[in-house]
């Protein structure tokens, strides 16, 4: 890749998805873009970029941006988050909401394991209020990831990372060498393509938002805007779950940490007035 090619990829990723791509990591760009180049019928990544410069087609630009997103995920990744959700957050919210549905959004869910982990918890939760309803939404910027998420079909390697065997046999069916989630769990999650770097005012309201392992991939200037967009989608008694490395209070006053809980944040009551 020429320096100009690299700059073009970096600029497109930032402009379209707010992604922070290190221009020094050319090997990363080449390894992520090589499968796209093959799919699009180009002999190399250089040919793909050259073709992009000529064609300038939106679907190809988006395919490039999607290819550069990090899709690393696993069932029950950072188990403590899910224990917290099952033992504390969901019982509290269902008590407060009564028959009103609890809406949970797994933002930037890649291939869907996080949203399905929440769905399995909701399915297995026995100590929730009678009649409690939990609606789960999964979103990602990458269409290809959402297609896989929607299929609920995972490789043996993917199901062994994070999924206890009891849950595998309870919720999955073996299909040749892969494992597919039961229709019951699949139907619990609704999928939507959402670009977190775009305007989030139309996404709706959610009682719990999981935005883990995504903010650090975003450009510094965009991260604050995303956090404030998420805050606007949360009610004052809702919760934001982040990975342990992120401290939103360093970027914005939209959130305050929930004391004693790693990665758990609530919206600051003053946020709306300030926004």
């Amino acid at each position: 890749m020429t320096p100009e090619d690299i700059q073009l990829v970096v600029a497109l990723c930032k402009a379209r998805a707010g992604l922070k791509i290190d221009p020094a990591k050319t090997y990363l760009m080449e390894s992520r873009l090589a499968p796209l180049a093959r799919r699009e019928g180009y002999n190399s990544v250089e040919d793909l970029i050259a073709g992009l410069k000529v064609r300038r087609e939106e679907p190809l630009i988006w395919a490039l941006v999607e290819a550069m997103t990090l899709n690393e995920t696993a069932f029950f990744r950072d188990r403590a988050t899910f224990d917290q959700l099952r033992d504390d957050i969901l019982p509290t919210l269902t008590r407060m909401r009564g028959p009103e549905p609890i809406r949970i959004w797994s933002a930037a869910c890649a291939t869907g394991q996080e949203a399905y982990s929440v769905a399995m918890i909701a399915e297995e939760a026995h100590d929730l209020e009678p009649g409690a309803r939990i609606d789960i939404y999964g979103s990602d910027i990458a269409e290809r990831c959402l297609e896989k998420a929607q299929s609920g079909l995972y490789t043996q390697f993917e199901v062994q990372r994070g999924l206890p065997i009891q849950q595998l046999v309870r919720h999955f069916e073996k299909i040749e060498d892969n494992w597919q989630l039961s229709p019951r769990i699949r139907q619990r999650v609704r999928w939507r393509r959402i670009n977190l770097a775009a305007d989030l005012s139309g996404v709706g309201r959610f009682d719990v938002i999981l935005a883990r392992h995504v903010l650090t991939a975003l450009d510094d200037g965009i991260r604050r805007r995303v956090l404030e967009g998420l805050a606007a989608a949360l009610p004052s008694d809702g919760f934001l779950l982040l990975d342990a490395d992120v401290a939103p209070q360093d970027l914005t006053d939209a959130f305050r940490p929930v004391s004693g809980r790693t990665g758990l944040f609530a919206r600051n009551p003053s946020f709306r007035a300030a926004a």
């Binding site: 188990r79 390697f157 062994q160 990372r161 994070g162 065997i165």
Partner: peptide, 9 residues
């Protein structure tokens, strides 16, 4: 990774 994950579970 798989052994470590399974042992943790």
């Amino acid at each position: 990774d798989i052994i470590a994950a399974k042992f943790e579970m």
